[in-house]
C-alpha cells in the first residue's frame, strides 16, 4: 500500500475547537507499536498550545505500559463530549514525554471533575467514572497534523479543515 499523500496544509486547532477540547471531554489515545499492533489508552487533561499546532495530553503511567512502550511516533487522540456525543479525532507526531508539575496536576483534576459532571448528567454513577482514572500521570506532547469529525453519523470520519484555511484558500 503506498503512503497516502500528506495534507496540503497541516490542521490547526482554532479557538472554538480548543474550547471544546479543554471543556472536560472524554479522551482516548491510540498508537501503533513497532510490530504494528494498535494500542489504546484513556487520556486526561488536554491542553492546546498557542497557535493550535501542538497539544499536550496526560496518560496514566501504571495503566498504559503497552502504549508507553510502543515507541510512540504517530498518535491519535479522540475527544468526546459525553452529553452531546460530539467527537473529534486529532492525529499528530509524538514530540516528547514529560512529568507534570503541580499546576498541570491541578489542571488535570479540574478537567476530570468537569468530565465527571458531564457523565453524571447522563446518569453515570460518579464512583463508576472515578474508577476510570489514576493519579500518577505522564505528559505526552504531540504535533497537530490532521483532524477528523468523529461524531456518530454519516459524517463520521470526514477530515476537518482549519478555520484559517476555510477563510482563505480552499484546501483539497
Amino acid at each position: 500500500m503506498p503512503e497516502s499523500a500528506p495534507p496540503v496544509a497541516p490542521f490547526r486547532i482554532d479557538d472554538e475547537l480548543k474550547e471544546f477540547i479543554e471543556s472536560g471531554v472524554a479522551i482516548l489515545l491510540g498508537a501503533v507499536d513497532a510490530e504494528g499492533h494498535p494500542r489504546v489508552a484513556y487520556g486526561w487533561g488536554p491542553r492546546v498550545h498557542a497557535g493550535g499546532d501542538r497539544l499536550s495530553v496526560y496518560i496514566e503511567r501504571a495503566r498504559s505500559p503497552q502504549l508507553l512502550s510502543a515507541g510512540l511516533r504517530q498518535i491519535a487522540v479522540t475527544f468526546t463530549d459525553p452529553v452531546s456525543v460530539r467527537s473529534v479525532q486529532v492525529k499528530g507526531q509524538m514530540l516528547e514525554l514529560g512529568e507534570p508539575n503541580e499546576a498541570e496536576e491541578t489542571w488535570i483534576a479540574r478537567q476530570r471533575d468537569a468530565m465527571t459532571v458531564s457523565c453524571a448528567l447522563i446518569g453515570d454513577p460518579p464512583h463508576m467514572i472515578r474508577n476510570l482514572w489514576m493519579d500518577d500521570t505522564i505528559r505526552i506532547d504531540l504535533t497537530v497534523e490532521r483532524a477528523f469529525d468523529q461524531t456518530p453519523g454519516p459524517n463520521a470520519g470526514q477530515p476537518l479543515v482549519s478555520s484559517e484555511a476555510r477563510a482563505g484558500e480552499v484546501v483539497r
Binding site: 497516502s4 504494528g36 494498535p38 494500542r39 463508576m128 468523529q150
Partner: peptide, 18 residues
Amino acid sequence: IPAAICTVGADGSPNVTY
C-alpha cells in the same frame, strides 16, 4: 462504559474511537 477501539490505517497511523 463504552468500549474503545484502536485500529491501524494503511499509512500506519492509529485510529481511535468508541
